[in-house]
Write a protein that binds this DNA or RNA. Structure first.
Length: 924
RNA sequence: GCCGAAGUGGUGGAAUGGUAGACACGCCGGACUCAAAAUCCGGUGCCCUCAAAAAGCGUGUGGGUUCGAGUCCCACCUUCGGUACCA
C-alpha cells in the first residue's frame, strides 16, 4: 500500500471526522493543569479566500499548541474572524449585496479551508466581530471608555465620577497646573456650569471623546475614502479629485497611556525591532512650550521645541497651514496667496507632506513674530512640512540646526544664524545635540546639553513657556463614515452626546437602501431618518466604529465566548489570564498592537481583567509573497510584446493570472480566452514564445497572484502542506511562494510511512530492542526537535526529522520503541499521518494526547572531537582527539602533523589558540 | 522622507565570534525496468584540470575590530513591511 494521494485524502477525511466526533480539541478550564494560550491574529475574511501566506503563522501556532499539549499544558487555541471592514462594504456598493451576506459566505469558506489543514482549534469558541452577540460588548466597552477618564494623580483610568469629585472640590486648579486641562476654573465656577458647559469640560477628559478631524471626501465617487484609496492626490478608483474636510468624530485618548505603553514594553517578550517600532511610534520627546508674540497684534503663537537652546538661531516661524491663527494673522495682501496654498495642502496626504524632499513649499503670511529673548522680528510662514497634529502645529525654525528648516531657508532666502559650533566634531550633523553654543547671549560658551537645561529654566522664569513632554503618538480616530462597522451606542440631545443604557445593547446595525454615504461625507446610516430620529429631540450617532474596535479585545472573548451576561467572566479570565504566545504579521506592529494594549490597560484599570499586558510573547511571521506574471501591452493598442522586446515600445504592464503562465511562457490562446477584452489580442514573440515578466509582491486578488492552499492540499495533502510551509525557512522571514521544493517533504512523509508499512501494506513494526546507535539518534532528535520548537525554529526541526528518518531507513530500523517516539515528535507538524500510523501500531488513544518524550543526555555525550586545525584562520587539516586531552598535548600533536609542518616549515608559531571541543588555530 | 527588517551556491535555506553551504529542490551519473514513473545508490559553491590532488576565490558593496567575521562596528546599495481610515 503506497502512501498515495488517494490514501492521504482518505486518512485526512477519516481523522477530521473522528477528531470532530470525539471533541478532541475542545478545551475546558482545568485548574489542575497549567494553562497555555496560543493566539493567531484572526484573519479578515476577504472574498478571495485564504491564500498560502495565511497558514504560515497558523501552522506555527498549531505546532506550538500541540507541542505544549504534549508537554502537559491545558492549551487554549481559538480562531475567529475580523469581519467588519472596507472591502465588504466596497463590494456592497458595487453589487448591492449586503455585507453581512458576503461576509458570512467568506467566513464559511475560510473556516472550511482552515478545517482541512488539521488545526487543533476549538471551533466552539469561534468569534466573529460582526456578530451582534460580539459587538454588543465592543459597544459596551466603548460606553465604559466614555464614562471614564485618565486620572493623572493615580495614573490610571477611573470612572468620570472621580473627576467630578475633584472638580467639585478644587475646580481644575491642579489639573491645569499639570497641563491636563486647557481651562482654569475654581470649584464654584464648575458648580455654576449648566449641563452643556459641564459636558463640554468633561469631554476634555473622557477616554472616548468628540473632536474634529479631517477626512478624505470624493465628490465624484460620493464616498469618504481611506488613505489607502487615495493615490497621488486623486482617488485610486477612477482618478477623481479628493479633498479633506473637517468633521466631528470620536477619538480614544490613547495618548494618556503613552508612558505606560512604553514602560510595558520592558516586560514583554517581543522582538527588539518590534519594541523599537512601537517606541518610535509613541515618540516621546522632552522639550518646551514657548510663546512668541505676533508683532502688532494680540495673538500669541505657542510652539513646541526639543531644542530650546537654539532659540537665538530662530530666524522664522512656520505654522501648519491648518493652524487656527493663520486666518487671523495673514495680512490683506497675502490673503489670496495663502488661501491658494492652503487649497494645495488640502489635496496632499500627510504622508506626501512628510516625505516631500525634492520640492520645498510654503507661503509667507505677511505677519511677523517677536523672539521672546531678543525681541527680534521674524517672518511667519505656513508650510506643509509642519503638521497640525504634532506638538502645537507651529515651530520656531532654526535653519542652522534643522535640515528641513535649512532647506526652507535656502528656498525662501531666509537668514541662517549659526548658534552651535560643531567644528570639534567633524562627523556630526547639524541636528545632533552636540557642540558649543555661539551667538546666543547668555548661552554662548555652554555645551548644548547644558544650554538646553539653562534655557528651560530661563523660559519658565520669564513666564513665556514651560517644560513639556511631547509624544508623536496621537489620539486614535474612532469614527468612520461607513456602514459596515459597529454602530455607536450614542444619541445626541441638543448636540450633547448620551449613551444608550446597558440593557439597550447591542444597538443593531440597521438595514439601509444604499451603502453609499448619504450626502456630504455622511455615513450611509444618516440616510435612515426614522432610525436616526428614533425619539423626539434625539438623534443617533450615524458614524460607525473602525476595524480595530473589534480586534482590540477579541482575545478575551475566546475565553468565554458564549457569555451573554458579560464580555467574559472574571473567573475564566483569571484562569486564562493572558496570551502566552501571539503570532501574526509585522504589518500589525504598531496599529493593532498599540490599540489592543491600550484597551487592555483600560480594562485592567477598571478591574475587569487580570494582567496589564495582554501578550506575553509575540512572534511575527514573514509575509509570503505572490509571484505576479506581467505582460506588456503597447499603449493604445491590443498588441502585446514579449519581455525582451518591450524596451522598443511604449508599454503598460498588466498582471495576468498565474495559471496562464508556465516557466514564464504565456499560453497565448488561454490568455485570449481569459478575458473578453483580450480575445482579439495580438503578440510580438521571441523565438516563437511570449515571455512574461515577473515580480514578487503582496498576494492579492487584484494582482492575480494568489495561491490557494486548497490546490496544494489536493495534490499533496495537508500534512505535506503544513510541513512544507515550515520547511521553507525561518518563521519570521518573508519570501515568494514557490512549490518547487515540496517534493522533498513529500518524500520525507513517504519514507516515514514506509518505516511502518512494507511494500505489501503490512505493518512491519517489531518489538526488538534498539541498538545504542539507534537510541543515540533518537535522543539527539528528541533534544533537537524540542529545542527548535521552543525557539520556533521549525525549518531546522523538520530537517532533524528528515535526518532521523533517513538514518532509520538506512539502518532498516523498524523497532516500536524508536518509531512510536518518532511519531509523537512529528505529530505536531503532521497530525494526520502520525495519528494513522499510531493507530496502525495498535494504539487506541490519540497520538496527540501522549507525552512529549524526554531525552537522556547520557546517549549524547561524546569522548572524541574531530578538531579542525587552521593556520592563520584557514583550515588546513583535521585531527580526531579525545575531548579530555590536555592543551599542551593537543598543541604537541597538532604541531607534529605533517600537513601543519608543511606550513610552519619547522619554525615555531607565534601563537597556538586552542578552544576545547571547537578548533585549533596556529598563528604564524 | 522617517521607523523597522532582510541580502549566503542554479533555488529555499543551515551555521553559541571557531571546519560556510546542514537539510531539501534542481542538475549530473548509476541501479531496478522492454520502457517510463516511482524508488534506491553516488556526485554537485566558483575557478583551474581530461580527471584528481594541491592551491586560489567565495556570505549585497567598501572599510574596520579580532588569532579567527556570514555573525561585531562604520558608511553605502538593493528589496520588503509600516507610515495613523487596507486589514
Amino acid at each position: 500500500m503506497d502512501y498515495s494521494i488517494d490514501l492521504i485524502q482518505n486518512i485526512e477525511r477519516k481523522w477530521n471526522q473522528k477528531w470532530k466526533d470525539s471533541n478532541l480539541y475542545k478545551v475546558t478550564e482545568n485548574p489542575k493543569l497549567p494553562k497555555y494560550y496560543v493566539l493567531d491574529m484572526f484573519p479578515y475574511p476577504s472574498g478571495s479566500g485564504l491564500h498560502v501566506g495565511h497558514p504560515l503563522g497558523y501552522v506555527a501556532s498549531d505546532i506550538i499548541s500541540r507541542f505544549k499539549r504534549l508537554q502537559g499544558f491545558n492549551v487554549l487555541h481559538p480562531m475567529g474572524f475580523d469581519a467588519f471592514g472596507l472591502p465588504a462594504e466596497q463590494y456592497a456598493i458595487e453589487t448591492g449585496q449586503h455585507p453581512a451576506v458576503t461576509t458570512e459566505k467568506n467566513i464559511n469558506y475560510f473556516r472550511e479551508q482552515l478545517s482541512r489543514m488539521g488545526f487543533c482549534y476549538d471551533w466552539s469558541r469561534e468569534v466573529k466581530t460582526c456578530d451582534p452577540n460580539y459587538y454588543k460588548w465592543t459597544q459596551w466597552i466603548f460606553t465604559q471608555l466614555f464614562k471614564s477618564w485618565y486620572n493623572p494623580f493615580t495614573n490610571k483610568s477611573e470612572k468620570i465620577e472621580s473627576l467630578i469629585a475633584i472638580l467639585n472640590e478644587e475646580g481644575t486648579t491642579r489639573l491645569f497646573a499639570l497641563d491636563k486641562c486647557q481651562v482654569l476654573i475654581d470649584a464654584a465656577t464648575w458648580k455654576n456650569y449648566d449641563v452643556a458647559a459641564r459636558e463640554k469640560l468633561l469631554m476634555q477628559f473622557r477616554l472616548a471623546y468628540l473632536d474634529y478631524a479631517d477626512i478624505w471626501w470624493c465628490e465624484m465617487l460620493g464616498t469618504v475614502l481611506a488613505n489607502d484609496e487615495v493615490k497621488d492626490g486623486v482617488s485610486e478608483r477612477g482618478g477623481h479629485p479628493v479633498e479633506k474636510i473637517k468633521m466631528r468624530q470620536w477619538f480614544l485618548r490613547i495618548t494618556e497611556f503613552a508612558d505606560r505603553l512604553l514602560e510595558g514594553l520592558n516586560r514583554v517578550d517581543f522582538s527588539e525591532s518590534m519594541k523599537e517600532m512601537q517606541r518610535n511610534w509613541i515618540g516621546k520627546s522632552e522639550g518646551a512650550l514657548v510663546k512668541f508674540n505676533v508683532a502688532d497684534a494680540d495673538e500669541v503663537i505657542e510652539i513646541f521645541t526639543t531644542r530650546p537652546d537654539t532659540i537665538f538661531g530662530a530666524t522664522f516661524m512656520v505654522l501648519a497651514p491648518e493652524h487656527e491663527l493663520v486666518e487671523k494673522i495673514t495680512t490683506a495682501e497675502k490673503r489670496i496667496a495663502i488661501e491658494e496654498y492652503i487649497k494645495y495642502v488640502k489635496s496632499r496626504s500627510e504622508r506626501d507632506r512628510m516625505s516631500e524632499v525634492k520640492k520645498v513649499t510654503g507661503e509667507f503670511t505677511g505677519a511677523y513674530a517677536l523672539n521672546p529673548f531678543n525681541g527680534k522680528s521674524i517672518p511667519i510662514y505656513i508650510a506643509e512640512y509642519v503638521l497640525a497634529g504634532y506638538g502645537t502645529g507651529a515651530i520656531m525654525a532654526v535653519p542652522s540646526n534643522d535640515d528641513r528648516d535649512f532647506a526652507f531657508a535656502q528656498k525662501f532666502d531666509l537668514q541662517v544664524i549659526p548658534v552651535v559650533d560643531q567644528s570639534a566634531y567633524p562627523q556630526v550633523s547639524r541636528e545632533d545635540k552636540i557642540g558649543v553654543m555661539i551667538n546666543s547671549d547668555m548661552l554662548t560658551g555652554l555645551e548644548v546639553k547644558a544650554a538646553i537645561q539653562k534655557m528651560l529654566s530661563a523660559i519658565e522664569e520669564k513666564g513665556i513657556g514651560k517644560r513639556r513632554v511631547n509624544y508623536r503618538l496621537r489620539d486614535a480616530g474612532f469614527s468612520r463614515q461607513r456602514y459596515w462597522g459597529e454602530p455607536f451606542p450614542v444619541y445626541y440631545e441638543n448636540d450633547v452626546p448620551h449613551l444608550l443604557e446597558d440593557n439597550e445593547l447591542p444597538l443593531l446595525l440597521p438595514q439601509v437602501e444604499s451603502y453609499k454615504p448619504a450626502g456630504a461625507a455622511k455615513s450611509p446610516l444618516s440616510g435612515i431618518t426614522d432610525w436616526v430620529n428614533f425619539a423626539p429631540g434625539k438623534m443617533r450617532e450615524t458614524d460607525t466604529m473602525p476595524g480595530y474596535a473589534g480586534s482590540s479585545w477579541y482575545f478575551y472573548r475566546y475565553m468565554d465566548v458564549h457569555n451573554d451576561q458579560f464580555f467574559a467572566s472574571r473567573e475564566k479570565i483569571d484562569y486564562w489570564q493572558d496570551v502566552d504566545l501571539y503570532i501574526g504579521g509585522t504589518e500589525h506592529a504598531v496599529g493593532h498592537l498599540l490599540y489592543s494594549r491600550m484597551w487592555n490597560k483600560f480594562l485592567f484599570d477598571i478591574g475587569l481583567v487580570a494582567k496589564d499586558e495582554p501578550f506575553k510573547r509575540l512572534v511575527n511571521q514573514g509575509m509570503i509573497q505572490g509571484v505576479s506574471k506581467i505582460v506588456y501591452r503597447v499603449n493604445g493598442t491590443n498588441l502585446f510584446v514579449t519581455k525582451s522586446e518591450k524596451h522598443n515600445y511604449e508599454v503598460t504592464e498588466l498582471r495576468v493570472a498565474t495559471f496562464l503562465v508556465k516557466d514564464d511562457i504565456l499560453d497565448v490562446e488561454a490568455f485570449k480566452n481569459w478575458r473578453s477584452d483580450f480575445s482579439e489580442a495580438e503578440f510580438i514573440l521571441e523565438e516563437g514564445k511570449y515571455i512574461c515578466g515577473s515580480e514578487a509582491e503582496k498576494m492579492s486578488k487584484s494582482k492575480h497572484n494568489t495561491v490557494n492552499p486548497d490546490d496544494v492540499i489536493n495534490e499533496y495533502g495537508a500534512d505535506c502542506f503544513r510541513m512544507y510551509e515550515m520547511f521553507l525557512g525561518p518563521i519570521d522571514a518573508g519570501k515568494p511562494w514557490d512549490t518547487k521544493g515540496i517534493t522533498g517533504v513529500q518524500g520525507f512523509l513517504r519514507k516515514l510511512w514506509r518505516l511502518f508499512i512494507d511494500e505489501q501494506g503490512q505493518l512491519r513494526i517489531t518489538n526488538e530492542a534498539p541498538t545504542t546507535a539507534e537510541l543515540k539518534l533518537m535522543h539527539k532528535t528528541i533534544k533537537k526537535a524540542g529545542e527548535d520548537i521552543e525557539k520556533l525554529s521549525f525549518n531546522t526541526a523538520v530537517s532533524a526529522f528528515m535526518i532521523c528518518v533517513n538514518e532509520l531507513q538506512s539502518a532498516k530500523c523498524y523497532k516500536r520503541e524508536i518509531l512510536e517516539q518518532l511519531l509523537i515528535l512529528v505529530a505536531p507538524f503532521a497530525p494526520y499521518i502520525t495519528e494513522e500510523l499510531w493507530e496502525k501500531c495498535g494504539q487506541t488513544d490519540a497520538v496527540h494526547v501522549q507525552s512529549w518524550p524526554k531525552y537522556d543526555a547520557t546517549y549524547l555525550t561524546e569522548s572524541n572531537f574531530n578538531y579542525p586545525v587552521s593556520i592563520n584562520g584557514k583550515v588546513r587539516a583535521n585531527i580526531e582527539l579525545p575531548l579530555d586531552m590536555e592543551e599542551n598535548d593537543i598543541r604537541e600533536t597538532v604541531l607534529g602533523l605533517e600537513s601543519v609542518v608543511k606550513w610552519t616549515e619547522g619554525k615555531a608559531p607565534k601563537k597556538v589558540i586552542i578552544v576545547k571541543g571547537r578548533i585549533v588555530n596556529v598563528v604564524l
